[in-house]
């Protein structure tokens, strides 16, 4: 009951944030955005047609009224239809988000796990050769552009110029239970996952190492050592659990960006029909209803996850109680 009340109150606090995001995206994308009357009617429309279309789109109404309409569309999750495919935006999202999650999740999870282990390892040997090697590797990883990584891995693993072990592009994986085949899944998900891991491990390792290094300087770590605790137990019991707050925050708050928007680059480059590809097309073609929906949905998810982290903090740290 307490948790429920706490959650509700936290969600209430997030209302201004949602309002802010919608206001921001409305101002940028609708109010100052391109004139959709021209876009919709094409170049050969008459002045009258355009005027009529503008009227229909509500361009002549005052800012507040138009923002109100925008808010209504947000609250009802009705972002209209895509300009280029004429499908309903929410239908497109519903169809593509599962694909995106399936593409992004393995790389996301493995990337974080690998980084945590590297981070622990480096932090424990802080200042020694091993630490320096891992950190140097992290800086190299951070310095390579995502796009270059994608190009290189596709070339190395998916083409005649390299090993040619995986399909170059596409996503021929059954998306319901009967059609799903784990081998197909591995075939298509491996290279995107490797790219995601390669790109994220550098940044994540640095972040996690910093967290662990700080934790390792704490008195309770010295106590554990003074009572004969070995390195494995020290790291995985004492250090990891104490560092869970920053780790969880980082992981959970990056989830909304993984789910929506996914990995725009990976999906568009590998031709995977996920939400990232949809957003990519929308950005390239200026398909506003989709970009609008993507911004607002991500923000709402973000706020939701923000609340979730607040609740999780108490589970992880007994010192934090419901307030």
């Amino acid at each position: 009951m307490d948790t429920l009340r706490y959650t509700l109150r936290k969600l209430l606090y997030s209302v201004p944030l949602i309002l802010g995001v919608t206001l921001l995206s409305f101002t940028l994308m609708v109010y100052f955005g391109p004139d959709m009357a021209y876009e919709k009617l094409g170049k050969n429309a008459t002045e009258e047609d355009i005027e009529r279309e503008r009227e229909k789109l509500g361009y002549n109404k005052p800012f507040v009224v138009r923002y109100g309409n925008f808010l209504t569309s947000v609250l009802t999750f009705d972002f209209g239809e895509s300009f280029s495919t004429n499908q309903r935006v929410m239908d497109m999202f519903a169809e593509t988000i599962p694909v995106s999650i399936m593409v992004a999740l393995p790389g996301f999870i493995l990337g974080n796990l690998i980084s945590i282990i590297f981070g622990l390892w480096a932090a424990y040997h802080r200042g020694q050769r091993l630490d320096k090697t891992i950190m140097a590797g992290a800086v190299v990883g951070m310095s390579i552009s995502f796009l270059i990584v994608v190009i290189v891995f596709q070339l190395l693993l998916c083409s005649d110029y390299g090993l040619n072990m995986f399909p170059t592009t596409g996503w021929e994986v059954g998306m319901n239970l009967e059609e799903f085949n784990i081998l197909d899944y591995f075939e298509y998900v491996t290279v995107p996952a490797i790219c995601t891991i390669f790109v994220s491990v550098g940044y994540n390792t640095r972040f996690y190492r910093a967290v662990f290094v700080e934790e390792l300087t704490r008195d309770h770590v010295r106590t554990a050592k003074a009572f004969g605790c070995g390195p494995v137990r020290l790291l995985f019991k004492h250090v990891l659990k104490n560092s869970l707050i920053p780790i969880l925050t980082r992981i959970i708050l990056s989830l909304p960006f993984v789910i929506i928007g996914g990995s725009i680059i990976i999906e568009s480059y590998f031709g995977i029909p996920g939400v990232g590809s949809v957003v990519y097309d929308a950005i390239v073609n200026g398909d506003q209803p989709i970009t609008k929906a993507a911004v607002v949905c991500t923000a709402i998810l973000y706020v939701f996850f923000l609340t979730l982290t607040d609740i999780l903090y108490q589970v992880v740290d007994p010192r934090i109680s419901l307030k």
Partner: peptide, 9 residues
């Protein structure tokens, strides 16, 4: 507000 909007979007 700015932090919860995806960068590229």
């Amino acid at each position: 507000c700015i932090d919860c909007i995806p960068f590229y979007l």
